[in-house]
Design a protein around this nucleic acid. Sequence first.
DNA 1: CTGGGATGCTTGCGGCAACAACTTTCTACA
DNA 2: TGTAGAAAGTTGTTGCCGCAAGCATCCCAG
Lengths: 159, 159
Amino acid sequence: MDPFDDPRLTAMGLLAEVSTGLAAELGKTFSAAGLSEVDFETLIRLARSPQHRLRMSDLAGQTSLSTSGITRVVDRLEREGLVQRSPCSTDRRASYAVLTEAGVNRLTALIPQHLEDIDTWFTSLLTPEQLATFLETLRTIRDVVRPCATAGVERVPTS
Amino acid sequence: MDPFDDPRLTAMGLLAEVSTGLAAELGKTFSAAGLSEVDFETLIRLARSPQHRLRMSDLAGQTSLSTSGITRVVDRLEREGLVQRSPCSTDRRASYAVLTEAGVNRLTALIPQHLEDIDTWFTSLLTPEQLATFLETLRTIRDVVRPCATAGVERVPTS
DNA sequence: CTGGGATGCTTGCGGCAACAACTTTCTACA
DNA sequence: TGTAGAAAGTTGTTGCCGCAAGCATCCCAG
């Protein structure tokens, strides 16, 4: 009768609930370390990049922030000394955001608790097979909704 | 060597990417209908509630917004005529947010496209078995990270 | 080598949401 | 019954983010 309880709506709602609920739990650890979720996302993207640095626009591509958003995030992180801007030698328009040693330290201090959080609220709730299947499904969807999530990491000079 | 590529981080990142990426796609339909994601979430929660109404604080409990956030969302929706505030007869502190007919119409106009979006970007990518397994896993996590997601829907008068 | 379009980043502006303080009303306990 | 504390909702404040405009630089066609 009501089209308001279509199973697809429930499915989507479930996914949203899990994602936001999980983020809320994990966020507690972030804020205890004086970071926002976006801050952490930014820092860890840098940490996982070669030389711990990424151009501003690549950072924007990897996170789901606009370039102006990235400008401001890096502003804040730079103000805290966790990140540093560094000019790009081959393109004077571009800047790199580089993780500082303080940034690395902040991250490494944070990560053990973060990993434990992920265990507690996510991975330990599933059997290894369940987890593997779950991740496989996520990858399937990811490849469709986010075709270029790897901006800046496997860019090969076209020389 | 680097603790920055722990599989748990990848797993969590994958989930976050899927959720935000999916939300971004679905959001296009919402904004085409003049609604934000939060607006839609609010309206559909009301639509799925008995008598198409919910107390402000229950609305806050179901969505992940603060009560002040709900106040403002309902302000906006009321300004657009999609929702109406209605005093609670048994508790003069409380208000109900009630879906208006215009609100129902806006929703019903929106939903076909929304369901199609969910198909396109989510459910149709999976086999029925994959989908069922996926939802089962989501439910497992949801029950842990969001134990009382059903505020206000199965509240029984304690008379 | 030069001018116009494209690109990288920043800034002004507006909207949104959380937090805390506040008002009104309810509840419980003496 | 009277009063203290809790609860529902609103409002002021602050910070964050996207959009559009702007500036500097790059690239390329002629």
